[in-house]
Simulated scan of single mutants.
Amino acid sequence: MSRELKPTDWLIAASQMKGIGRQTLRKILPNIQAIPPDLTSLRQNLPEEVEISRNKRQQLLQLNRQQVISVKEMLKEKGIGAISIFDPIYPKNLRNIPDPPLVLYTLGNLQLLRKPMLSIVGTRIPTNYGKQITFHFGRELGNEGFCIVSGMAKGIDAEAHKGALQTCGGTLAVLGCGIDVVYPAEHSWLYKEIAVHGLIVSEYSPGTKPQKIYFPERNRIVSGFSLGVIVVEASARSGSSLTVDSALEQGRDVFAVPGSILSPQSMGTNKLIKDGAKLITQIKDVIDEYPLHALSKRDGLKNDSEITGNESKLLDIIENTQSTFHQLANASGLPAREVADAILRLQLRGKVKQLPGGFFMQVQKEGLTNAKCIINNRED
């Protein structure tokens, strides 16, 4: 491992120190950002005029180069990524909220951070109606190129992730615990699927157990990533209201799916509509708000666009046969995310179409097809 250290490395290591929270780190952020590559101890870059408590100062002054290197090596051994607010890949939307996370631990495809995002939230005890609507919205918005963000909780969150996993838009799960802690435990399979085909993030150090206070903090990140928040089903006193509060504070759009006036699970969403949230009953209601982001509305993906090397390679593979997504990845030797991007662009040009069972075949007819890229057919 390279021994060259960046301000991000020092910030990540400092954030893992016991008793050092976001407020303290925010006060010393300019000092960390100005750290030179050859710094040996934080003692050299923490002047007396920085207003933090004596105990926290003494603790931070102990942070040295070897400890920072040890944290980097520990994360690498565990296969955990980490980015900070200093990094270019850190999403602009999230950076601009009132209280952005300074560090994000990651598992999965960081390229999803470059996609337009929409979050879907709701009750942990949805009706069958709520489950069906959520899965449908997650899948179809993913097909439009949006990355679907949620909190991997039971109910609506899980359905949103499952729907989006079937698309090239992908899904991002924000945890209210350490990145290496699966909560709830019964979502172990979902956690693994998102880690492989999507992205998992957490602002909490690895190993951090879930606590009630962490979930409202997580919700501000769910909405912070997103252009807008979609609430499918929520009771009158739903935790989703905290996400909506964060969304409104952050200037995000709020959408709500109407439900039966007799259903307790729809009392919260119906009230949101009365209070001014945009009522939505179809995908078009959402994508019409973001014409520059939806794939079906974008220019620049025309049939006569130049074929890239990856696209040409996939066309050669399926010239006289039919292949699944995983067969294309294996035969081409390309990373899964590159196969997903290439096959989606070929579909949008009408050069490839998808058949039942998740198979892809080459077509001669020009035209726009549904932007679907099945990665995982699991729906239960």
Rank of each mutant, 00 (worst) to 15 (best):
H136M: 15
K27Y: 02
T308P: 06
L175F: 06
I120M: 14
G309D: 07
C373E: 05
Q354W: 08
R43P: 01
S305C: 14
N377E: 14
G300F: 10
I120Q: 07
I156V: 07
L11D: 00
P36V: 04
Q33W: 01
A153C: 11
H136C: 10
E140L: 13
Q58N: 15
L102Y: 03
R378V: 11
M74S: 11
I97M: 07
S2D: 13
R65Y: 01
G228W: 03
A294G: 04
L272T: 05
D285N: 15
P36Q: 11
A82D: 02
E51Y: 04
E311S: 05
F86W: 10
V244Y: 00
A82L: 03
V286A: 08
P258L: 10
R26G: 13
V196K: 15
E4V: 14
G21D: 12
I375C: 06
E306H: 13
L39Y: 00
V149N: 05
Y183C: 10
E186A: 10
L61K: 08
K278M: 12
I52F: 02
K278R: 13
R237N: 15
D245G: 09
L344H: 12
Q67Y: 02
A195G: 09
V339A: 11
F325D: 05
E144P: 11
K365Q: 14
W10M: 01
I221V: 14
G142E: 02
P335M: 03
Q58A: 04
T243N: 08
G358H: 12
Q44V: 00
K302C: 14
S235M: 08
E159K: 10
G357P: 08
L314F: 06
N128C: 04
E159W: 15
I221C: 05
I52E: 05
S41M: 02
P335V: 11
L46A: 06
V201N: 03
D157S: 03
Q111L: 07
S41A: 08
L346W: 02
A234H: 08
N31G: 00
S150W: 05
I343K: 04
M152R: 02
Q362N: 14
H293I: 06
A331Q: 15
T308I: 05
N55G: 10
Q67L: 01
R237A: 12
P7A: 04
R252H: 09
A14M: 01
R298E: 08
K92V: 09
F135H: 12
M1L: 12
K56I: 06
L328F: 13
M117W: 05
E338V: 11
L292S: 14
